[in-house]
């Protein structure tokens, strides 16, 4: 327990989290501080490229083993199943309509890559190694949840099908292409490739992450300010309880697959995190009746800050305790 508190305190006082808090406070206090759209986009391209490349290089260095396929399969199943748990919990805790609840549920099956990146930086800070291919697991977990959400809606009577155009947009969205592509480049070029560009993608990584999280704090703060009254206490409780439930399911999956303690922690983070980029976009197309301010505020305004501040240290500590690592 003391370990968990210690880890939580260290995490809260890291430059990364404090940058997020700065952004959040600035937005809540109506400061005019902002990160230009194009700059934020460039920061996210940098982070996706760096995290993908490092994951690929780690795979090249350690070699592939059978747990890769099992981990990918576990990721697919988790992403498809978690929306059902989320949907059930939403029906208990909130009075959202079926369509709104299904849309929210879809977000919680999918993942937040920024939460994943923040978790890898916490692991690195504590010198806990993890499987490089967890990046690929993150990529496969983006989409299945969307299908589950649409299925939940169609079971309620209104027919929803995924058109092929939407499917293509989801599977080939820029983030996934960049993440998987950089992973492939890292895996092909290996340690040599990493050495060549490490001064660009390794050393400045945490600093860039700080700036990116500053922007995320601004966006989350603005979202919270503009959507006051959108969420009732049941919905906010869902935003905090669901990631913990998700992380426990992820813990089970990680143990079953036989991941390292670091890998299990990342699997927990992926299962706990909620999407706020890919899934909202898909939901606007496929479920336009669902209220975007409900699912965006929940995933970006409640669950993301929770995971970033309390969730990640908790999941890391639990994975360490369970595996004795």
């Amino acid at each position: 327990m003391a370990d968990i508190l210690d880890l939580a305190a260290t995490n809260l006082l890291s430059p990364v989290i404090l940058s997020f808090v700065l952004g959040l406070m600035a937005a809540l206090g109506r400061s005019d501080l902002s990160v230009p759209e194009a700059a934020a986009k460039a920061l996210s391209i940098y982070l996706l490229f760096a995290i993908g490349f490092k994951g690929g290089a780690a795979v090249a260095a350690n070699g592939l083993d059978g747990t890769l396929i099992a981990s990918l399969a576990a990721g697919l199943v988790l992403s498809a199943v978690l929306p059902f748990i989320a949907f059930g919990l939403l029906q208990v805790l909130t009075n959202l309509s079926r369509i709104d609840a299904a849309a929210v549920a879809g977000h919680y099956g999918s993942i937040s890559i920024v939460t994943f990146v923040a978790a890898t930086s916490v692991l690195e800070g504590r010198a806990i190694s993890s499987e490089g291919y967890m990046v690929a697991v993150a990529a496969v977990m983006e989409a299945p949840a969307i299908l589950s959400a649409l299925w939940l809606v169609s079971r309620g009577g209104s027919d929803r099908r995924m058109d092929s155009e939407l499917m293509r947009e989801i599977m080939l969205n820029g983030s996934i292409v960049l993440l998987v592509g950089a992973f492939a480049i890292g895996a092909i070029t290996g340690q040599d490739g990493l050495d060549k560009i490490s001064s660009f993608i390794v050393a400045p990584f945490t600093g860039v992450l700080c700036l990116f999280l500053l922007d995320m704090g601004l966006v989350a703060g603005r979202g919270l300010r503009e959507s006051r009254g959108v969420l009732n206490s049941g919905a906010v409780a869902f935003g905090v309880i669901m990631p913990v439930i998700g992380s426990i399911v992820g813990l089970g999956a990680g143990l079953l697959v036989g991941l390292s303690p670091g890998g299990i922690a990342l699997m927990m983070v992926l299962s706990a995190s909620a999407s706020y980029i890919a899934v909202p976009a898909a939901m606007r197309v496929a479920l336009p009746e669902a209220n975007p301010s409900v699912y965006l505020t929940l995933s970006l305004g409640v669950t993301f800050p929770f995971n970033l501040t309390i969730g990640i240290p908790l999941y890391v500590a639990v994975s360490q305790a369970v595996t004795g690592g």
Binding site: S34, A281, L296
Partner: peptide
């Protein structure tokens, strides 16, 4: 509700 392009998390909104 009100919105501005600045600070949107993605093009979707």
């Amino acid at each position: 509700g009100a919105w501005t392009r600045e600070g949107q998390i993605s093009r979707a909104s």
